[in-house]
């Protein structure tokens, strides 16, 4: 229990919040890395996933690749990239993007292919171009599931971004490593607490966005249940 008090005291120390190793700085760094990774990951994964879901082609291949990519241990990937690229943010960011892409990809193709074919056909029949169908019909209807993928990816990245501290002086992982290596457990636990709070806040934010997405997808709440 003294550990709990020491951790709280560590967090309470106002001097710790300022400065280049300060809590504010580390929180912002961590958030920036997470946001950057998810954005880049989405830029890569969403177009591919949406295309796969829309054309109903290539799903097995993409799903298999995503499954295999999920199994890649991020620490190992980070180590190899670190050996190749040296210290700094390049290696962790690349490794984290590989972590984020499978969830984003799965959310995208599962969401789009789950849109009722009848709706898509109706849109096609009414003269919409393929692009219009994707943007005006499929995306809004697929939004909840796509956002679910974003939410899953974000949570994974936020938790794993601590590994960035292995090769770069960045993020909440610094508290974890420095605390671990020097047996300064209050520091380590404080880092963990901060991370959990950050993760929780992002969860709340994204689940609210996902709920908004559900309202867009079925405004009257009368969307027929699909068998996923």
């Amino acid at each position: 229990m003294t550990l709990v008090f020491e951790t709280l005291a560590w967090l309470n120390d106002s001097a710790r919040w300022a400065g280049s190793n300060g809590i504010t700085q580390r929180l912002l760094e961590h958030l920036a890395v997470t946001a950057g990774v998810v954005l880049v990951g989405a830029a890569i994964a969403l177009p591919v996933g949406i295309t796969v879901g829309h054309t109903h082609r290539g799903r097995t291949v993409v799903a298999a690749l995503a499954g295999a990519a999920r199994a890649i241990p991020t620490l190992g990937l980070l180590t190899i990239l670190g050996l190749a690229l040296g210290i700094g943010l390049q290696a962790p960011v690349l490794a984290l993007i590989v972590l984020a892409v499978p969830s984003l990809l799965a959310g995208a193709y599962a969401g789009v292919e789950n849109v009722s074919p009848a709706t898509v056909d109706a849109a096609r029949a009414s003269g919409m171009s393929e692009l219009q169908i994707i943007v005006l019909v499929e995306l809004p209807l697929a939004a909840p599931i796509i956002l679910g993928g974003v939410r899953a990816a974000t949570l994974q990245v936020v938790a794993t971004a601590t590994l960035a501290a292995y090769v770069a002086d960045v993020g909440l992982g610094r508290y974890l490593y420095a605390g671990l290596k020097t047996r300064d457990y209050p520091q380590m636990l404080a880092g963990a607490v901060l991370l959990m709070i950050l993760a929780l806040l992002l969860e709340l934010l994204l689940s609210a966005v996902q709920r908004a997405g559900r309202r867009v997808a079925s405004p009257s709440g009368s969307q027929l249940p699909h068998h996923a």
């Binding site: 210290i87 490593y177 420095a178 671990l180 290596k181 020097t182 300064d184």
Partner: peptide, 8 residues
Amino acid sequence: GGNSEGET
């Protein structure tokens, strides 16, 4: 540059 524990 060095291991974390080197800082303290």
